[in-house]
Design a protein around this nucleic acid. Structure first.
Lengths: 141, 141
DNA sequence: CTCAGATAGTTATAAAATGCAACTGTTTCA
DNA sequence: TGAAACAGTTGCATTTTATAACTATCTGAG
């Protein structure tokens, strides 16, 4: 009998690696972004709207985050807006182009995922979906 | 109704990130290895026994792989053995210390995983295990 | 008030990692 | 034979990264 731990090791790392590599390809080849830039966009959309928040969430130094935002701003994907109440703070947000780019990358990644999931019956998809909910409960307390 | 794709996005990246970060902590703080070195050890044990094989599998340049092996050899975790038939080739293998280190890291990582899985009933664990098998089938054809 | 200390973000610079190309030693095969 | 191919290593220029200093701003105890 295979333990859950073994299943976990055999499954999660390889499928995530495959997915991540796919995202990397899409982001790089079709949109000219590194994965790091893609991650930064994701996080900004998710609500991490300052350089510090970005740094902390992404486990990078503030100087690194500052420069990353710089590149994204140059690419017109992100805007910096100084807070009027606390003029030290800079609020980050996606431009329309940033939103579009992020959505397009997600759409392509999801099309790729969908291809894989086509191989499953609806019942199997349902089973997996439920199992993933259990997994989340175990990991994200 | 939540689609499988949504479940996937909500589950796989965060739990893998958490797990990976845990491995990073264990490898770094308790064994003085970077994740990259840990990955290299894993791959060598898995059978990628030359610098080129290591480079290709790990998606790094050969010079990078060569230098990584150098560090591992200095740490006495890996041995290089020149092939007697083709003296260009260098066969890589783990030393006893390398095996022990790798096993110890795995053991700690699995203890950590086990803690998370304690939150599940045996039935739930079984369900997840089956669902992961389906997922593998969809991704790794 | 006010000024010492804290905070957000940026920039300078020194150290480390990376990729490319050159190089060594070895094998292959025309 | 010897030219080309190959495995691996090393040198070097470029890029990335981390640390710390720096600017600008805010806060709050006295």
């Amino acid at each position: 009998m295979t333990s859950l731990i073994d299943s976990f090791w055999e499954t999660i790392p390889p499928i995530w690696r495959q997915t991540r590599s796919q995202i990397r390809m899409i982001a790089a080849e079709r949109f000219g972004l590194t994965v790091e830039q893609f991650q930064a966009l994701r996080r900004i959309r998710k609500g991490y709207d300052s350089v510090s928040a970005l740094a902390e969430e992404g486990r990078l130094s503030r100087s690194q985050a500052s420069r990353a935002v710089d590149v994204l701003a140059q690419k017109k994907l992100v805007t910096r807006l100084t807070d009027t109440n606390d003029r030290r703070r800079v609020h980050l947000s996606l431009t329309a182009k940033g939103e579009q780019t992020l959505s397009a990358i997600y759409a392509e990644a999801e099309a790729w995922l969908d291809e894989r999931f086509q191989r499953l019956t609806p019942g199997q998809a349902q089973e997996i979906s439920q199992a993933l909910a259990l997994l989340r409960a175990a990991f994200l307390p």
